[in-house]
């Protein structure tokens, strides 16, 4: 039976190995080579030279910082927004299904296409955002969202949070189903208010789900490409040049495969650290208690 099972697994395993695992191995090999991109060009072993260069590469470091900033701000905002939406849409009310679906829509739309939509919203002359804020007296006319060093990153973050908060909401909704209703009732009988009920009863159960959301979203936000590429292209002045754009440039603009591979591996290592931290954080107190018993 187990042998037969292997047979069923094999095609899927083979595909995953070729498409997802082999590339990482290939990157590891490339990162130790200086690759000649000319047709029929070879490669020369250079040891850890690329990694040494990466440590002194100010441009790459700046892109890491930009990505980290983008990730931190995006995650904080979408966590709050997603959590809030989930808590509200967890309550039962007529039409809940349709409202949940509507809330989910931003997550399902093509990011590159919606980035074009956002570019139109942020347009300095015809954009609704500038016009709306000016009409409300909140903004001086002539603000160029995507042309300003600070506003551009904020604009990208807003578009990203809009898109990804529903994903956090989805995971939190799944988590809320796991909270035993009896506990809430018990807490209610003890006279706990809504805030206390949330922190004492709901939050411990949500913890692994929140960690999971942070894990997924952290990795994806750190690797964001589509949205930034279409919305700002990394500008103005590199203010939104996130690490994925830097890697893409290193491969396809600078044609430095070996160096790009080294930078990719370093990025992967950072993602690995983040994932490990989130897995640790996700081990909920409930699990630990269950384990100690």
């Amino acid at each position: 039976m187990r042998q037969e099972g292997l047979l069923y697994l094999l095609p899927a395993a083979a595909l995953l190995l070729v498409v997802l695992a082999a590339p990482v191995a290939r990157l590891a090999w490339l990162s130790l080579q200086e690759v000649e991109v000319t047709p029929g060009g070879g490669a020369e072993f250079v040891g850890l030279a690329h990694f040494a260069r990466a440590l002194a590469d100010g441009i790459f470091h700046r892109s890491l910082v930009t990505s980290a900033l983008f990730t931190a701000l995006s995650l904080a905002a979408e966590l709050l927004l997603g959590l809030g939406m989930a808590l509200i849409l967890h309550a039962s009310f007529p039409g809940r299904g349709a409202v949940r679906a509507a809330a989910l829509i931003p997550w399902t739309l093509p990011p590159a296409v919606m980035a074009i939509g956002w570019r139109w919203i942020y347009h300095d002359s015809y954009g609704i955002l500038t016009a709306g804020l000016v009409a409300l007296g909140l903004l001086a006319p002539g603000t160029t969202w995507l042309g300003d060093r600070h506003l551009a990153l904020a604009a990208v973050i807003v578009a990203d949070v809009w898109k990804t908060a529903p994903f956090v909401m989805l995971i939190v909704l799944a988590g809320l189903q796991a909270v035993p209703p009896e506990l809430h009732e018990a807490a209610l009988l003890d006279g706990a208010g809504p805030v206390r009920r949330f922190t004492m009863v709901t939050l411990p159960y949500l913890r692994p789900y929140l960690a999971l959301a942070l894990l997924f979203r952290g990795v994806q936000a750190f690797g964001v490409f589509d949205l930034v590429r279409v919305l700002t292209g990394g500008g103005p002045g590199g203010a939104t040049r996130v690490v994925a754009l830097a890697l893409y440039d290193t491969f396809y603009r600078y044609l430095e495969f070996g160096y790009g591979a080294a930078l990719t591996l370093l990025t992967l290592a950072l993602l690995g650290l983040w994932a490990a931290a989130m897995v640790r954080a996700g081990r909920s107190r409930l699990d630990q208690e269950a384990g100690s018993r």
């Binding site: 000649e36 020369e44 250079v46 260069r53 002194a56 590469d57 100010g58 441009i59």
Partner: peptide, 11 residues
């Protein structure tokens, strides 16, 4: 400084 690092990279 960054240019020198760039131009000194292997090959």
């Amino acid at each position: 400084r960054e240019l020198r690092t760039l131009l000194a990279s292997p090959r």
